[in-house]
Computed example of a mutant assay.
Amino acid sequence: MTAPDPLSLVRDVLPPADLAWLEKARARAAADPRSVILLFPAVGRHCGRRRALDAGGRRLDDACRALLLDATTGPVLDLLGDLYHDGGVDERRAVLKALPRLLDRLPAESAALALVHDALRGDDPVLLEAAVGPYGGRHLDQDSFRRAVLKCALAGVPLTAVATLRERADRTLARMLAGLVRDRAAAGLDLPEGVWVVLHDHPDLVLDLDADEAVRVPGEARTWAPRLARTLGMGGA
């Protein structure tokens, strides 16, 4: 299903005065792409800061900043780098979120990957979640992808936010997450949300976890894991 056009959504929720500011800002961005450096921070004041845009979890400020970038023309990589490195958390998040829609304006599909790696070096859950979105989920190499997923799990970012998780999760990542589950259970800590999405394809690891008294394997996993393990020839009662 095609995602709703952000401009239509924004027009439905912004008050007239704020919408007028956004339209003027987009016209200015079209005439002078570098003006976005000044306009990006102003979005929070004029278009709402961290306000939900729709039921899908998109934020109004992210959408408005993406619309500013859409209004610019020409190569965009240098502009994105300046916006990211000079911006705060909200501006950096917006840049990361906007990357998939700007692919045709980058010199190569993975050209902005350095921004993703920068976000992953930090510990801010907001930026980690944005870094493992569709752009990072597609372009990170496999080892970096595994480490990104593990870092999200440690930082409390739901693994369901990781784009391409089911497609890219491999045995190595599953083992890493199983170890994390065991360590956190032993310490009495909550398990990362979405970890069972990865472990679903590795029922033998789930069975091993279920044998650990400290780990609380969800009831549904106790149902499908033995059955799937038998089907795959991995054992199971």
Rank of each mutant, 00 (worst) to 15 (best):
R11F: 04
E23Y: 04
P41S: 08
V132F: 05
A211E: 14
V89D: 06
D143R: 13
G48K: 00
R171T: 14
S8N: 11
L207E: 00
R45F: 11
L127V: 07
D141E: 14
P125C: 01
E220S: 13
G136V: 06
L165F: 02
C64D: 06
L106W: 02
E109R: 15
D86N: 12
V198P: 02
G57T: 07
A30G: 15
D90K: 05
A169S: 15
P4C: 14
R227S: 14
L14I: 08
G44Y: 00
R146E: 08
R138H: 13
T73L: 12
A214Q: 13
P203V: 00
L115M: 12
L68Y: 00
A108N: 10
K151G: 05
A148D: 02
P75E: 13
D70Q: 15
T223H: 10
V89H: 01
A52S: 14
D201M: 07
L77I: 09
D12L: 14
L127P: 03
G137K: 02
L140I: 13
F40S: 03
L154E: 15
D82V: 14
W196S: 06
L159K: 01
T223S: 12
A17W: 03
D54I: 09
V217Q: 02
P226Q: 08
D62P: 04
W21P: 10
P158D: 02
D118P: 04
L177E: 00
T164H: 14
S144A: 15
R146A: 07
L232I: 11
D90E: 15
P15C: 13
L103G: 11
D86G: 02
D86S: 14
D82G: 07
V149R: 04
H117V: 09
Y135G: 06
R171D: 12
V162C: 09
A211V: 08
G88V: 08
L14G: 07
Y84Q: 05
L38I: 01
L60V: 09
D78C: 06
S35C: 10
D170E: 06
G194F: 03
D124L: 07
A186L: 10
D212E: 11
D201H: 09
G133R: 06
D190F: 04
V95I: 06
E129M: 04
R34G: 09
V217C: 04
P218D: 10
R166P: 00
T164N: 15
H85S: 11
L113P: 01
V126C: 06
V162E: 00
V126A: 10
A225L: 03
R34E: 14
L19H: 10
D61T: 10
D118M: 04
R184Q: 13
V198H: 01
L228S: 08
L19V: 08
Y84F: 15
P203M: 04
C152H: 03
S110V: 11
L165K: 05
L19S: 09
W224N: 10
R147S: 14
L68R: 00
L7E: 10
V132Q: 06
G236I: 07
L228I: 04
G194K: 04
S8K: 13
G136R: 01
A66M: 12
R227I: 14
A187D: 08
D210I: 01
L191S: 03
A55C: 06
V198I: 11
P16E: 15
L9R: 11
C152E: 05
L83Y: 01
D124S: 12
L77R: 05
D210P: 00
R138A: 13
A108H: 11
L103D: 09
L159T: 01
V215D: 00
